[in-house]
Design a binder for these strands. Structure first.
Lengths: 188, 188
DNA sequence: TGGCTATGTCATCGCCTGTTGACAAGCTTC
DNA sequence: GAAGCTTGTCAACAGGCGATGACATAGCCA
């Protein structure tokens, strides 16, 4: 007697992609150190050794994840409502989605030296540069830094406190204060 | 023949305090996971086992460090120049000092679940509450959150990029933009 | 001086991590 | 249908971690 276990069809490309996807989700939700190869493998339903075979080391996998997400999601949508959208995302926690993947990964991995070095190598070219160009205008590099900083900082503050811990009315006030700050940074 | 090794005089209180101090420095500079008991012990010049004996577990030591720093350093100094001072600290990296110990520890430890839980327990009472009271006025809790968020976010952004990576002039522009934002949050 | 307690050290345990090489099972092709 | 390359699994290793209990020694008190 045998149980009919449901195997995924053998497809290297699909499996590789699934690993990349699972890794991305993990790295946006937890820090580099906290994410284990065994965790990712379990998510995909695959042996940990396979990840090593496909991507080399954990660092290489991390690099591949960062290469994969282009960081341009931030800049999609109407420019004139950027502040409002982001303020909502930050306060009400919708940031778990893919919009802010780059930011969240950068944030969560600040603790680990290896991950930080990789982020440092890639963030300038793949994140800050496009963001700066998108912003344009006066002091664009400076505004990009402040913008990214606010987004990361408020997000980490919320995470650390286990939610905003504010009343519904206070949440409204928060978005009302954040939105113009962010919008002003976009407008210049 | 024997080398004259310089032993610190046996003094439990002093040693305990030295451990606490070294741990505080480590936890402000690196993440909870990255800091090892052996590192702290080496800083103090003591056997790792002693730390366990004095403080129990690593979590308990972390809690003790957080209990030790009162988080009121942020609120010292002239209120009317708060924005300017903090903007300078952030951009020029003086934040390594003790002014922002609470903030940096919170920030660096966001990655580890255990540390995050402890921070979550203590930050409300020991950090956000005094900060909120110091701010006072309209929407104080909201302003406290935004303020702490910006400080953490810009700091982590700088850390991750290995410095601000801005020209001297751009640094000036950055402080010029940050200072009024921060000051406005203080003034209400 | 002799002993006793506080203080600090040493060796070691168990656990978890990333990584590796040997092995098993599928799909393709002749 | 059998060889052969691809895809995936298994078991194990080396290294680092926090924590523990047994041992050594310094300083005080009688």
């Amino acid at each position: 007697m045998s149980f009919a276990v449901c195997h995924r069809p053998r497809n290297a490309a699909a499996t590789r992609s699934a690993i990349l996807d699972a890794a991305s989700k993990r790295f946006t939700a937890e820090s580099y150190d906290q994410v284990g190869m065994r965790d990712i493998a379990k998510d995909v339903g695959v042996d940990p050794a396979l990840i090593s075979r496909y991507f080399g080391s954990k660092e290489d996998l991390f690099r591949a994840v960062l290469d994969d997400c282009d960081g341009k999601d931030l800049m999609e949508g109407d420019r004139s409502t950027f502040g409002e959208r982001m303020a909502d995302d930050l306060v009400y926690g919708l940031a778990k989605d893919e919009d802010l993947a780059w930011l969240l990964i950068m944030l969560k991995s600040a603790g680990s030296p290896k991950a930080a070095e990789i982020v440092q190598q890639l963030s300038a070219e793949c994140f800050y540069k496009p963001l700066t160009e998108w912003l344009g205008g006066k002091d664009a590099p400076v505004r990009a830094r402040i913008l990214a900083g606010i987004l990361m900082g408020v997000a980490v503050g919320r995470d650390l406190s286990g939610g905003m811990k504010l009343s519904a009315e206070e949440c409204e006030r928060m978005t009302a204060r954040l939105a113009p700050m962010l919008q002003e940074l976009v407008d210049g």
